[in-house]
Design a protein around this nucleic acid. Sequence first.
DNA 1: CCAGACGTTGTT
DNA 2: GTCTGG
DNA 3: CCAGACGTTGTT
DNA 4: GTCTGG
Length: 228
Amino acid sequence: MCGRYTLHSSLEEIATEFAAKAPKAKIEKRYNAAPAQKLPIIIRQQQNYIKLFSWGLVPSWAKDPAIGSKMINARSETIAEKPSFRSAFRKRRCLVPVNGFYEWHKTSSGKRPVYITPTNGNLFAFAGLWEVCEQQQQPIHSFTIATTEPNNILKDIHNRMPVILTSNEARNLWLQQDAPIEDCLKLLHPCKDEEMQYHYVSRKVNATYNDSPDLIQPVVYDEQSEFF
DNA sequence: CCAGACGTTGTT
DNA sequence: GTCTGG
DNA sequence: CCAGACGTTGTT
DNA sequence: GTCTGG
């Protein structure tokens, strides 16, 4: 699964990486981006744009926006059929730029947060979907992140991971509105082992009010440390 | 026909 | 909006 | 994902 | 336990 990530690259760096037009609004460096927050994503409408949408997809028919808190991830195995996702999967795919993401490794001495980053130091692009819900006073623009089975790097840590599109070909196809659905489905697989690395980090990341660079610093866990 | 759901992960 | 269940 | 709330009436 | 909020 994927429920937290970082994005500390500047808007300019993101715009360059994805050949996208940046919004006027500024963005802060994020070391603990969480669901329900407005975060930058890449969508294509004539050209690529960076937009600030809420994490947690609110379907167009939703009467209660709280449903978005249950829609932070979309299983790639069923993404084309589920009522909440299928229309977005057909017409509203997006990329979610991240510098790294967190997973929680369940051990006998509690859950330990792990931070996963690209081996090449560039940005990861998660495969996502976006939606707009007009049922409310104000339209709600939101997104979700596709998940898949873990690769060999992560399989001992967690049983799901986000779909990461590493090649420009894959990213372009995913953003292309009229791309054949079968081709899009083929992109929904774990990325290669050699494309990611990880280390353990402090449990400070658990609380969303912590959001600082020290959250991604490596931490060594052993049995001793569990008593403090 | 109308009413009600529409999700994921992980744990049992 | 669209599908399933009753 | 984790943290924190989970309720009503009436009064300030 | 389960839902909401971040």
